[in-house]
Computed example of a mutant assay.
Amino acid sequence: MRMRPTLSWTPTEDLPPGTTDLEPVTEVLSAGGVLILSGAGLSTESGIPDYRGEDGSLNRHTPMTYQDFTADPRARRRYWARSHLGWRTFGRARPNAGHRAVAAFGRHGLLTGVITQNVDGLHQAAGSDGVVELHGSLDRVVCLSCGTSSPRRDLARRLEEANPGFEPVAAGINPDGDADLTDAQVGDFRVVPCSVCDGILKPDVVFFGEAVPPRRVEHCRELVREAASLLVLGSSLTVMSGLRFVRQAAQEAKPVLIVNRDPTRGDRHARTRVALPLGSALTTVTERLGIPVDGRPTAPGES
């Protein structure tokens, strides 16, 4: 029997309580050398929901696993129908105050890097450079047979042509870009193959049950080694893909600070967890540091 990956986490130990004191975050950033690790909670103010928490999408939705996607043509049809609709919402999303604050920290030389668990491209749209997309990005598509990578907008055009009039109303959109549709709404949605070899196309993201590429993991570990501190923004740290970097920083005696509304799996490794909305919290920090938040928000991929 194939086991599904762990998708939720409930605190089972006494964890340090959250605080509203932003001074430790301000102090760490003012010293520079900060590595950012961001999660879905940073993008909720852009209209992209979180997986976890009281209103998280996991309460109604189980994300597609790599095993199901590769093994079952019906699962792929459901996924691409739902993802095709969800992509329209992602394409309209704009960076919020939290993304713009992170970009401002980078412009002022306070960061050594940004690692994001998000697949929405909003850090880059806000102006952050050198972002490591731990779980990939929805704006790229890869062929599982020949390895060809292509822009998501090209696939979206092909799917539009193959499915004229496909305009169902989704019950919700999830952080992986998957819209909530019934089987009846999916209907006989047509999936298109790779334009090079007719192979199976997959979004260039790490599905649940799929491993993050080892070279990417090692690059992130090197970023942790080079940083003076780690600042976690909007991640519950439920899955090991992000938690391992928190554990590494703690083992290397580097300060770990977390800004997240709810308790996280990394709280026991952290100096503090600030339980405030990210946009307003990070804006307050920029003001305390005297850093202007410049630039206009742009859409992912917009130049």
Rank of each mutant, 00 (worst) to 15 (best):
T20K: 04
P151M: 06
L134P: 03
C194D: 04
V186N: 00
L159T: 07
D14W: 05
E23G: 12
H61M: 12
G56I: 01
R273P: 02
G301P: 12
R76H: 07
M64H: 10
G86F: 10
S229P: 00
A126S: 13
G91E: 13
F208A: 00
L223I: 02
S195W: 08
R4Y: 15
L134T: 06
C220L: 07
T20A: 15
V246G: 04
G109F: 09
T283E: 14
L201V: 04
G136R: 02
A97Q: 12
D178S: 07
V142I: 11
L122Y: 02
L58A: 08
M1W: 13
T238F: 13
R60L: 13
V259K: 09
L7S: 08
A162W: 03
L110I: 03
L35M: 01
A97I: 09
I173G: 07
R273I: 01
I258T: 05
S280D: 13
L181C: 01
A275Q: 06
G136A: 05
H84F: 12
L29P: 00
G109E: 06
V191L: 06
L276D: 06
L134Q: 03
T264G: 14
R271A: 12
S128M: 07
V102Q: 04
A75W: 09
R94N: 04
D129R: 11
D68S: 09
W87R: 15
S128N: 04
R2N: 05
G301H: 15
V119S: 00
E161Q: 10
A281C: 01
L144M: 15
Y79K: 07
V256N: 10
F69P: 04
P95I: 09
A227G: 06
E302C: 14
A101P: 07
T65K: 04
W80N: 08
Y79Q: 08
I173M: 09
S145I: 08
V142W: 01
T238S: 14
A270D: 09
T89Q: 11
L37W: 09
T89C: 06
D55K: 14
D14C: 11
G91H: 12
E160W: 01
V206L: 01
R215S: 15
T19A: 13
A250Q: 11
R82H: 08
T298W: 14
I291Y: 00
P11A: 00
A270Y: 06
R152Q: 02
R244M: 13
A211N: 10
V274F: 13
D180W: 13
P17N: 02
L138I: 14
G18Y: 07
Q67P: 02
T286L: 10
V239P: 04
V293I: 10
A104W: 09
R247E: 15
L237C: 14
P193F: 06
K254L: 00
S30Q: 09
R100W: 03
G147N: 06
M3W: 08
M1Y: 14
R60E: 15
H61Y: 15
L282F: 07
G177R: 00
R4N: 15
A71M: 06
R268L: 14
R265S: 05
R152A: 03
F166P: 06
N118M: 02
